[in-house]
Design a protein around this nucleic acid. Structure first.
Length: 679
RNA sequence: GGUGAGGUAGCUCAGUUGGUUAGAGCAUCGGAUUCAUAACCCGAAGGUCACGAGUUCAAAUCUCGUUCUCACUACCA
């Protein structure tokens, strides 16, 4: 089982620099990793916390094009924005680097070279589109053309966003380069593949050593390994000009695959932070490496990156990869493009100084074992019924009484009753309970345990009733208040990983220095006679009004997005081109599901000329029995194509909205005969 | 369709190798209390453990089937 490690290296997934951060990012991996690291630091352990912006990949140049700017400006903008958000929410990275740094380019480049020299890669030459004007190969996203499926003239080389089909660039009709607008030519290109198929036994063995990983993580890995023929070779280079150049002769105009270079970002960030002894954290068996990620990154961190490290040979592998599931917002998926999100930088405008409230909420509601939902109503309840009522209230009543009875001077504990001793014993047991949960990456459990300490305090005060005793037994009250203050002080220590701002505020009120974790096992951190500062409220109630504003804001963005998103006008086309299409009216005679598919219906349509079979992807919106007799428009001279073994002889025309939902368009004169031409 | 993860109280979740009346927090209701941000403290109510079958003395837990949700993947002419 786990060796005794001397130090820990914690990485958090590198966020992609093409948009601001939202609550899903925080809940997914940054908050859990921050809690873990803060606790380890508090214990005095040797630990580094690494992160940075992922600034490569094909999506960034495209985003730049849309915004009419350069990739560099995009990544600069979001790198700063994300870094600021992390800082504001107390995510305590030791370094927040970026993959566009020179040090990263060098590190990733060297890494690739090492694998290349070792002969780890296989080379494969394929035909790809090349733009002769721009003098470069075109990645799929740089090519647009007419979708062979739905005739959308603006389909991308990898996917048609209109009909959703996955494409190869070579499938496109009339391909065009988005760089120069010219017609690209097919040219041979060489790319380097990591033969994951050959590495599968080693990867399997590695995963077998880590049966203790979370169920969602091992499950995902298993599914990759067991699926079909197992792992497949994966290209580690791309024909693109944005990224780390491939350091090999004959690879001009190529960059490293973003998922090859991004995880190496962890290494280069460590180098940047510790130029002299970074290898201690990456190449020494006494170091424990932990990757905090979201579930979408599991395959890269559990299979591909370890495979790269194995091939290299010098590096240690991750000992654990605690991946979280996804956080939804008010019942819907968080979506950057639909603006369905709570943005971190906006949150702080509406909820100034309430970083810890969000941290608390996101930890208490973290999607640790399954997707979870963030609702504003729940946010309010957690703040008002837990932070205010339990934690804030306990601290407040203790401090108020201390000022009232002793002018803020800690009273001395005289003689302990049985009840006192029991309370002190429980107090001392909390750190270990919280530790057990944190070490098992069960942060919501750990947080609940922390709150139980505040509950213990509330109960102790309710049971001992110092406000009554003060009239009859002042000596006894001294002891009671001393204990209540000790609980308050220890709360400040154990809440620090979760609520760092609150902890600092509380220590300040107590006029205490920062205390290490082990101090929380002691029951006499505050000496008699110690003078505390003026008390103030730790948490404020959140009123219905404030919540309503947030919900309205979301509703508004929902409305805006459903109304505004209309695809842009297409390029002009000629009447000749249009008249080449033979579109007829028809009637659906038969309809049935195509087995083993989710979306496909096999239709028999009378189009006047004949009755033909058409396979159509409308099963998500129409049941077969409901559309028999439905009048449709059919493109009848489209080249036939086999889909799932069925020859489809045409295409029915459907309206499609922003959500990709499809609808029939009805003629207003029902008696039009089948086969009428649509012009 | 394939693979993986889930389905437990109104809500969010625990439930370790199958073993007494299935737990917690919040919400609800009742009581007590006033130091405290109408907060705290005590108590109650609330569950056919998605559904169906099987194995067993015993199933939330194991097996098989069905169904729903999410992710990856295939399919959208």
């Amino acid at each position: 089982m786990p060796a005794i490690y001397k130090r820990t290296l914690v990485t958090s997934a590198l966020p992609y620099a093409n948009g601001p951060l939202h609550i899903g990012h925080l809940a997914g991996c940054y908050l859990p990793s921050d809690i873990y690291v803060r606790y380890k630091r508090s214990k005095g352990e040797d630990i580094l916390f690494i992160c940075g912006s992922d600034e490569h990949g094909a999506a960034i140049p495209i985003r730049a094009k849309i915004e009419g700017t350069t990739p560099k400006e995009i990544v600069d903008k979001y790198h700063k924005m994300m870094g600021d958000s992390f800082k504001e929410f107390g995510i305590s990275f030791d370094v927040y680097s970026r993959t566009s740094n020179q040090i990263h380019h060098q590190t990733a480049s060297d890494f690739f070279k090492t694998l290349y020299d070792k002969g780890s890669f296989t080379e494969e030459t394929t035909e790809q589109y090349y733009d002769e004007e721009a003098k470069q190969f075109l990645s799929d996203r740089y090519i647009i053309g007419t979708c062979p499926n739905c005739a959308n003239p603006n389909a991308y080389g990898d996917q048609c966003e209109k009909c959703g089909s996955t494409l190869n660039a070579t499938d496109l009709i009339n391909p065009k380069s988005t760089l120069s607008g010219s017609k690209p030519v097919l040219k041979l290109t060489k790319n380097w593949f990591l033969p994951l198929d050959k590495l599968q036994p080693k990867i399997q063995a590695y995963l077998n050593e880590h049966k203790d990983w979370k169920a969602n993580v091992t499950g995902q890995c298993k599914s990759w390994l067991d699926n079909g023929d197992g792992l497949q070779p994966r290209a580690m280079t791309r024909d693109l000009d944005w990224g780390v150049p491939v350091p090999v002769k004959g690879a001009e105009g190529k960059v490293l695959y973003v998922w090859f270079d991004a995880p190496i970002g962890y290494i280069s960030a460590t180098k940047e932070l510790r130029p002299t002894d970074w290898e201690l954290y990456w190449k020494n068996k006494d170091t424990r490496l932990i990757h905090f990620i979201g579930k979408d990154n599991i395959v890269f961190h559990c299979i591909i990156f370890p495979a790269m490290l194995m091939e290299h040979g010098d590096y240690i592998l991750a000992d654990n990869v605690p991946a979280n599931e996804f956080l939804n917002l008010e019942g819907n998926k968080i979506s950057t493009s639909k603006n369905w999100a709570v943005w971190l930088h906006e949150y702080l405008i509406d909820f100034k100084d309430k970083q810890d409230v969000l941290r608390y909420m996101l930890c208490a509601n973290a999607p640790e074992t399954k997707d979870n939902d963030f609702t504003w109503a729940d946010f309010q309840t957690k703040n008002n019924s837990e932070l205010v009522a339990i934690l804030g209230n306990f601290v407040n009543r203790t401090l108020v009484l201390t000022h009232k009875y002793y002018h803020g001077s800690v009273p001395s504990a005289e003689t302990f009753t049985k009840e006192d001793l029991l309370t002190l014993e429980q107090l001392a047991s909390f750190p270990d309970k919280i530790v057990a949960s944190i070490e098992a990456f069960r942060f919501r459990e750990a947080l609940a345990e922390m709150m139980n300490l505040a509950r213990l305090g509330n109960k102790y005060l309710a049971d001992t009733e110092p406000w009554k005793l003060i009239k009859t037994d002042e000596v006894r009250v001294k002891t009671i208040m001393n204990i209540a203050l000790q609980i308050t002080c220890n709360l400040a220590i154990v809440c620090e990983p979760f609520l760092p701002f609150t902890s600092a505020k509380l220590l300040n009120m107590l006029n205490m220095p920062v205390l290490k974790w082990h101090a929380a096992k002691q029951t006499s951190n505050m000496a008699a006679g110690h003078q505390i500062n003026k008390d103030e409220l730790l948490f404020a109630k959140i009123e219905d009004e404030e919540i309503k504003i947030q919900i309205d804001k979301l509703e508004l963005s929902k409305k805006n997005n459903t109304v505004i998103v209309v695809p842009p006008a297409k390029a002009e086309t000629s009447f000749d081109d249009f008249s080449k299409m033979d579109i007829r009216t028809g009637t659906i005679l038969e309809a049935e599901r195509v087995p083993k598919t989710d979306k496909l219906l096999k239709l028999k349509i009378d189009v006047g000329i004949d009755t033909r079979t058409v396979v159509s992807g409308i099963a998500e919106w129409y049941k077969p029995e409901d559309i028999i007799g439905q009048k449709v428009s059919v493109l009848v001279n489209l080249a036939p194509r086999k889909i799932k073994g069925i020859e489809s002889q045409g295409m029915i025309l459907m309206a499609s909205n922003a959500e990709g939902e499809l609808s029939f368009m009805n003629s207003t004169k029902p008696d039009f005969n089948n086969g009428s031409e649509i012009k």
